[in-house]
Design a protein around this nucleic acid. Structure first.
Lengths: 148, 148
DNA sequence: CACATATAATAGCAATTGCTACTAAACACA
DNA sequence: TGTGTTTAGTAGCAATTGCTATTATATGTG
């Protein structure tokens, strides 16, 4: 009579976001915004569409997240010289010190969350969740093809 | 250079919700609403506050979810004879056939998500995520006490 | 009893998200 | 070149969420 793994994952993810947001309320950065900043710091110059795919939100949702990050002076859109419809996303220098803080916070939350798990168990957890994510991600793609 | 378990859990949970919502778009029931219905079917008569705690949302959020379920004729508030501030939550008979459908959908989504995992791996996954959830949940409680 | 404090639920507001429809630009191909 | 299709991104709208403040009721204490 245990709960479904779907409920369990959703609850846990919500608690993760809540723990993170509670620690970063001052900076006004949410868990999802941080995700974008973190990705951009490692892969500058990506377009909006592919980044929306990567973080698994709708393109319009990412578009408005970038609006807010631009307003906050943390990110910027640069024209793509090869395609006038597209924007290339970059961080501003202002984002770097903030990212350092956020990384520390992220590590702290993960440390809390995985307290009592051995290194092997953490690896096992990540591997299993990744397989579930891949299953659901693949399904999504198949569904899109079906509708063609 | 792997991604944090926090990001991974959030992505996977979002994909779960998306897969579920895509299959139930006709019925207009979301993954979180289903969660409420499912809990009420097994534990009728709970108050709003405790149920909000259980599904880990704010009380006001649950209150408005119940508003919608009442409008849809699926749930109802009954006065608590021992406390005139409180409501006791119940499902209506209308909810039962819907719940059967939703359970089938839920099982199908979980089957997709855990495709390729052995029974032992599914148990292991659930056990590990549950430990993470418990860590974060416990922390939440501690934090509330700190603020007193 | 009087009065302070705590609790259950809700209203107002602002922020975020996604669905749908749309614009502009690129591409395909006769 | 012309024309139809696809792609990148965005605006409008409705729905949902959480923070803060508020109402009504319950409980504790002198």
């Amino acid at each position: 009579m245990s709960e479904s793994i779907g409920f369990l994952l959703n609850d846990t993810a919500r608690l993760f976001r809540r723990a993170f947001n509670a620690r970063t309320r001052d900076s006004g950065i949410t868990a999802l915004q941080w995700r974008v900043l973190s990705y951009l710091s490692r892969h500058p110059g990506i377009r909006q569409g592919p980044l929306a795919d990567i973080i698994e939100v709708e393109p319009i949702t990412l578009s408005r997240m970038i609006d807010r990050l631009e307003e906050a002076g943390l990110a910027e859109r640069r024209a793509d010289p090869t395609d006038r419809r597209a924007w290339l996303l970059h961080l501003t220098p202002l984002a770097e010190p903030l990212l350092d803080d956020l990384r520390r916070t992220g590590r702290a939350v993960v440390a809390e969350a995985t307290e009592g798990l051995s290194d092997a168990e953490r690896d096992e957890l990540a591997a299993l969740v990744e397989r579930v994510r891949a299953n659901l991600s693949r399904r999504e793609c198949l569904k899109e093809k079906e509708t063609l």
